[in-house]
Amino acid sequence: MRLANAILQRLCNAILLIAAVIVFNFALIHLAPGDPAQVIAGEMGGANAKILAEIRHAYGLDKPFLEQLWIYVSHVLRGDLGQSYYFNAPVAQLVAQRALATVLLVFSGLIAAIIFGTLLGVFSARRPRGALSHGVTILSLVGYSAPVFWTGILLILLFAAAVPIFPVEGMMDPARTGGGWIGRAIDIAHHLVLPATSLGIVYLAQYSRLARASMLDVLGADYIRAARAKGLSENVVVYKHALRNAILPVVTVAGLDLGRVFAGAVLVETVFDWPGMGRLAYGSILRRDSPTLLGILLFSAVIVIIGNLLTDLAYRLIDPRIRTSA
């Protein structure tokens, strides 16, 4: 019952949030100078006044701002995200084509960062003054400070140019034929390694620091001493008793990070020409393609809200105290 209430409350918040996302973004995009008709004309290599007027009329750009906003909102309420000014294709279709690529990149980067970061943190917490601990600290500092696009370019130079073991462009090799879906999956995984790594490294640093601090905290607690006194093996103490408590801050931050990882994905997608939403969003800003941009922002908002909801559920799963009290 309590769970249902909590979810319901969050959904209400989510709807308000989404409404705000739509209105604010619509207004912001319209504040930017330049109009899509000029972009389309620019792409054509020139235009005349008649063509410009035709384009503006075709997309309703000649109507007043509030009327345009109303038309957009009423369409979205009916589940219609509109047509892209630029590609002249339904926004829902454009976003759907790209969404999977971004979700794949973001989740593999984030999950790898969480798993490896936490493990590194735990290792270093067990010997806080050991060589491994110092190594992890240095790695964290470097990884966290380096801009994600720089890491990406460096990885390309290292693992695609100097030692060419990974491809640099896109998500799959379009020239590849045959091999079935397994071959395709391997191809995608092969293409995924470098972008997911460059996206993950920043967060890896963060999680290793977080897990290390939180682990050190927990390992000093009385119940750990009790567990050790009971004669439990060190591995059981660390992984069963300590980690379960130490991981809570990691889960919290992971939920918060989801939105930030999406933002970071724009840069990684650009560097690796990953056909995801980030690049589509960036391109759409440059083209003043507001329906596409709004569609992407809407989708991202929904993903972040779902992510936060999942974080809450994970909390309940890990920490029995929340299940009963909160």
């Binding site: 130079l157 695609a160 640099v168 462009e169 560097v271 020409d273």
Partner: peptide, 15 residues
């Protein structure tokens, strides 16, 4: 192949 990143274009051709 639609590529926008200059370094990816160069490395892609080299490879």
């Amino acid at each position: 192949r639609i590529i926008s990143d200059p370094s990816a274009i160069v490395v892609g051709l080299e490879q």
